[in-house]
Write a protein that binds this DNA or RNA. Structure first.
Ligand SMILES: [Mn+2]
Ligand SMILES: [Mn+2]
Ligand SMILES: [Zn+2]
Ligand SMILES: [Zn+2]
Lengths: 139, 139
DNA sequence: CAATAAATTAGAATTCTTCTAAACAAGAAA
DNA sequence: TTTCTTGTTTAGAAGAATTCTAATTTATTG
């Protein structure tokens, strides 16, 4: 990590009205330093442990939610038993590998959703989420 | 419920290799007698209680999963905190009302998903799920 | 430096779901 | 029918993910 990178992350947090604490900076680094990630709370927690960052699971959850509320992350619902958080906050879709439980982005423009029927009365779209579930070809 | 209806449900269960026990028939009735439903385990349990059907929550879960494995139900993932089961097993999509937590079908042909990019190597599609999340227009 | 408010934490609590192992009921065989 | 076998149901315990509580620590402000 270069010097400027940490400064950038600190700015990112400050811009989101989040105090750049030791824990938040460490999480921001794990989340945003190395391309897009789709990650669960437990996974991020063990990544942090692996990077010798002392942080409690409660703090992981607190911050994942705060980052999400601030628009730094978004939540992807693909599995009814755990939450995934996505560092790519642009509108896009996903491949979901059922065996491994991993996600892969589908860029918005690659995929077209057409002919959405009239919305239920009194509602507006909050998002359109496409999950292409894939599994290994049995051979 | 007409006489023939119970016989139909019994056949439906037998065809799926499921013994038509008192509990299963009662659940089948709650699930399949009155149009399509999108239901959670807890909701089905209270529906059963309301209909004076004595059935444990464990049995509700057992049967929702057995019905799903048998193709009588399918699971819809829209909320990372609970599972929804759908009596409509044809391919189709959903509106999800974020406020109420309710689902509404979008017929397969109404909505078109195009330009799915090449699948990850060695995988095949198991399903394509579109969730249009809607919320009440604030006024 | 205080003072204040925000953030972190351990551990308890909650919620949804699954498991265990014993009792029970359904269908098959006699 | 009765008996046998196996599938089903169940209460309650256990498990997993997540949230809450309330005490401590840390960051920012004055
Ligand atoms: Mn499940
Ligand atoms: Mn959960
Ligand atoms: Zn993504
Ligand atoms: Zn449906």
């Amino acid at each position: 990590m270069v010097q400027s990178e940490l400064a950038d992350l600190e700015k990112k947090l400050r811009d989101a009205q989040l105090r750049p604490t030791k824990q938040r900076l460490a999480l921001a680094q794990l989340l945003f330093s190395d391309g897009n990630r789709h990650i669960t709370a437990e996974r991020l927690h063990s990544d942090a442990m692996g990077a010798n960052v002392a942080i409690s699971l409660a703090t992981i959850y607190n911050n994942l939610h705060q980052f999400t509320a601030a628009g730094l992350l978004r939540e992807v619902v693909v599995d009814s038993s755990r939450s995934y958080f996505d560092t790519n906050v642009m509108p896009h879709h996903h491949f979901f590998h059922e065996q491994s439980g991993t996600l892969e982005d589908i860029e918005k423009n690659d995929l077209k959703v057409d002919n959405i029927p009239p919305l239920p009365e009194g509602t507006e779209i909050s998002s359109v989420d496409v999950i292409v579930r894939v599994s290994s070809t049995r051979r």
